[in-house]
Design a protein around this nucleic acid. Structure first.
Lengths: 217, 217
DNA sequence: GTCTATACATGGATAGAC
DNA sequence: GTCTATCCATGTATAGAC
């Protein structure tokens, strides 16, 4: 596969229409891939929804797959930026971790369709060479969480358990909440719900008779 | 869509070949749907893999979609059985909850391909009438967890937090572990890892200075 | 019940004009 | 850069023989 992300030749033409066609195609493709699935979506339909014709798609993206890759490239960039900013933040490990999850949750909230498309690709065909390597997302998020947890352990704030385990617990909870964003027919937890559930992880479920007054207040 | 799950007419013919063709088609379809995705899989390919021809598929299942529905019907049945059995078990809430998760984890472990296919359908096209209602799975699992949590709260074993929140936390952790089953390229947690991570939820992450000796031992 | 052969539709991609 | 027109592969489904 040739480079796909390079923009069309930077001509001196009116960038007004030129950019808009590419942009509108991306937006239309996100909605249609989301609704019908990648394989079941036709280039024709996407072009029509964007108000252009099929060859325009091939001019800008080279192929249907190139269109998908362009969408995911942008999503991965946003995701990485969110993680990096959240990890760099100051504060207690607990607060940093909660806010990292909230930020990722918010990012998904603002891009539900892209999230669903990415999720589909993640699960997608495994014999054709992977359409896109989305493992980097999981890795980046996990590394960020592990980093914060280790900070918290070094500061005697968090128990000295396996930081990878903690990462899996937090990411699982986050994913569970994100799943519900992706399915409107499920009850939504929202930012408050996410915070509440993460607090369960920090504080535990058991009745601790030594600290019962504080915990059940 | 007409009823799809009714078996082929119960003739008095040698059930040997008749059953085998149906069974082999199901197994082949699971593998191919898994590898290539539902939309990208062709009936021709499935029939060939099962050692029969296309019309045989239409005889047994009516359509490509009927084949998918038959697969999912079976999966839902197994899933429900697993939940019901685990919820009915005796013991402490903590132990019952962990074993419920382990049982579901084990079920997925033994049916990774079906799990991936179901997951794909879950995320699948949302404009065509839903291929299959998999929300019942989420609901059933959540109800089971909530039931166990409320038992634990009534027995003064678990803190009196919102049982739905606890369910979302536990299910998120379980899902995170299951995700890793579905992607061999990710590090696997296994039954032990799942137990460890669930223990984090029960015991919390914070250093509790009142019980520090017991928790960090 | 299972096969061969085929009708019929759709979709990805390109050629060539403007 | 964008259009019209078209090529060609693939896929679902069925008709009809055995």
């Amino acid at each position: 596969m040739d480079p796909v992300e390079n923009s069309p030749p930077a001509t001196a033409l009116p960038p007004d229409q030129e950019i808009r066609a590419r942009r509108r195609l991306l937006e239309a493709a996100i909605q249609i891939f989301d609704r019908k699935g990648y394989a079941a979506s036709s280039v024709r339909e996407i072009a029509e929804a964007a108000g252009v014709t099929k060859p325009v798609v091939y001019y800008h993206f080279g192929s249907k797959e190139g269109l998908l890759v362009a969408i995911l490239d942008e999503a991965v960039r946003d995701f990485n930026r969110t993680i990096d900013a959240a990890v760099a933040r100051a504060g207690s490990a607990r607060e940093r971790l909660v806010r990292l999850c909230e930020d990722v949750y918010g990012l998904f909230e603002r891009n539900v369709s892209v999230a669903r498309v990415a999720h589909m690709v993640f699960l997608g065909p495994r014999d054709v060479a992977p359409l896109y390597d989305l493992m980097v997302l999981e890795r980046r998020l996990r590394d960020g969480v592990v980093r914060i947890v280790k900070d918290g352990q070094a500061a005697d704030e968090l128990r000295g358990v396996d930081a990878e385990d903690v990462a899996l617990a937090a990411m699982g909870i986050l994913e569970g909440c994100q799943d519900r964003q992706m399915f409107p027919e499920l009850s939504q937890v929202g930012h408050d719900g996410l915070r509440r559930i993460l607090n369960l992880l920090f504080d535990g479920l058991m009745i601790d008779r030594h600290a019962q007054g504080a915990l059940t207040s």
